[in-house]
Design a protein around this nucleic acid. Structure first.
Lengths: 340, 340
DNA sequence: TTGTACGCGTTATCAC
DNA sequence: GTGATAACGCGTACAA
């Protein structure tokens, strides 16, 4: 095992000098610096996290978590993942400041970022995809704060890393799944219940779905409605859709409002079967799977999203390790009742 | 943060004494012992892993890994998971001894266990489900060696923990998936390609499948063959099966020999479509999905199996933490080409 | 510029 | 029985 001591001994300098070189604190003769750097490089020196952890306990790095999770049960598992990681990293002196909000108010989110800003060394955020938020996050990054987006990414921003699913692929997979369930021969008359077309992930899912649909001659989109992720709106709109298109035999629920849409399908109480799929296994969605309204769902590992986001922040803050990649993408899994 | 020092101070004893109490090394006055124990309990003392790691480096705990992985690409990902964890725990002085074998020879496995036995503090093993192996593992456990079974469990053994999938549920999920793909109305004439009915997991998958099939009046099992996880045998047997039952329209491949069975299906080159599903995403299986022979597969998180097994061993050996549960079960996931 | 010394939490060891 | 001390690897304040 290579330690600072090893390098110091081999270079004939003290541990302090090696440390200064490795941390770029200056005040080292150029030749010495070069020697130490080469030696560390050559021996493949990797600082021991255990030592780092022990030494770093006095810093108490603070992580802010800002989620649009109020009233959105999807985030329950994300939160559980973050909290599990929080407990695990507690001994490293890591502290977490929580902020949650309901809905997608730009002003509210900006206000909460500003509130957290002076207190934190890193931010885990479920961001609204708006240029003003991107600007705010860039401001944080420039001030030395790490920023990790979770579940939803934001365009044109300096954020260090994104942890979440591949929405485009989620749409593709959804379409392929419907093809499997309905076959290539039977005509598929499709109703699409979109969440909010201004939300990046929702857009991308629909694009992915459309791309995968090219060449499927038996697939026909009858209509696309937006429910704004609201259950009541979803219920009313879906009901209207089903009345308007009596030959609809498939429904793709792109984002939220799953329960409302399913209740609308249930309320028709007719013989003709509708094949429906949606995303995420929140309790009401599982209920609708059990009732047979939803044949399958796509699952984006919410627990692991939360945990991984904290892992990345921890590695950066405590061990000084930059994320290996700009994004950490979890697979879209297909779930039916049996393997929930 | 509660440290040994905190407790020592509060009890008016030295850190050494606290350590002796907490590790049951004896040589402590009963009253002192009681006092310290109560104090630690009351304050909820949790030893700091970082400190432990630093202090424990000289122990060099050794983990033996014994897998029947030769010639079985399924284990490639399991191995990758173990190796990633190995690298991560390297700094704690953890060493790993690898042993692999081809096939399922009892004598060979026993010999390899005996070879590892004197050198290891823990064993991660893909065991043959036989009483003689169970006996061997119990022997290890009694000698103070931790034993973790991975991917396949063993019956009636003292092993500390099992990490793997739920085979019974895998079978259930497979049946439910076929029902979704083929519908409840059309008659389903099923051929089942079993691996080896003496392998516990293979048995359980079939049982799960059968249980889920109860009440599906349109499902009919035409035949069940065994391929002994051998590709050639699988190819020949499947070919014979397809010739014998020309109305077969669904195939369930329970375990190995996926490639052989798929090649047999391909070789018929006929118009009638066969819906086929299998387990695990090894390269040849993915190839057959791309060719359209397999509509979907079930995936048992091999990478995470390997990683988790090492996690559990690490926690026990280095931090002295017993596994919370006797088994750690990963979900069976449904994969199609799009979300592989 | 460079070296020394201490603290972080745990544990092994030596001295009493 | 018990206490004191050194060691592990790293970061850093302070001394030289």
């Amino acid at each position: 095992m290579i330690t600072i001591k090893t390098i110091a001994g081999l270079c004939g300098v003290s541990r302090g000098t090696v440390d200064r070189v490795l941390h770029g604190r200056g005040k080292v003769k150029p030749e010495t610096e070069e020697l130490v750097r080469q030696m560390a490089e050559q021996l493949g020196f990797r600082p021991n996290p255990a030592g780092k952890a022990l030494a770093a306990r006095k810093h108490h790095p603070v992580v802010g978590v800002l989620l649009t999770s109020e009233g959105n049960p999807f985030f329950d598992e994300v939160i559980r993942g973050i909290k599990t990681a929080e407990a695990q990293y507690h001994i490293y002196g890591l502290k977490v400041l929580w902020q949650t909000m309901k809905g997608y108010s730009l002003e509210k989110q900006i206000a909460l970022i500003d509130k957290l800003k002076p207190q934190i060394n890193a931010l885990i955020i479920h961001p609204i995809n708006d240029a003003r938020i991107a600007e705010k996050l860039d401001e944080l990054v420039r001030d030395g704060c790490m920023v990790v987006t979770v579940n939803t990414d934001i365009e044109n921003s300096l954020r260090h890393c994104y942890v979440g699913s591949d929405y485009f692929n989620g749409g593709r997979t959804a379409c392929a799944l419907l093809e499997l369930l309905l076959g290539r021969e039977n005509p598929v008359h499709l109703g699409i219940i979109q969440g909010n077309s201004h939300v990046l992930g929702h857009q991308q899912r629909l694009e992915g779905f459309r791309q995968r649909m090219e060449g499927l001659d038996n697939f026909h989109i009858l209509a696309i409605i937006e429910n704004e992720d609201d259950e009541i709106c979803s219920y009313e709109q879906t009901k209207r859709l089903l009345a308007e298109y009596p030959d609809m035999n498939a429904v793709f629920i792109v984002a939220g409002g799953v329960y409302g849409a399913c209740r609308a399908i249930l309320s028709r109480n007719q013989l003709r079967h509708i094949t429906a799929i949606a995303f995420d296994s929140v309790p009401t969605t599982v209920e609708m799977m059990k009732k047979g309204v939803l044949q399958a769902i796509l699952y984006q590992h919410p627990y692991r999203q939360g945990h991984k986001a904290m892992d990345i922040v921890f590695e950066y803050l405590v061990n000084g390790i930059e994320p290996v990649s700009k994004s950490y993408i979890l697979k879209n899994e297909i779930k039916i009742i049996e393997n929930l």
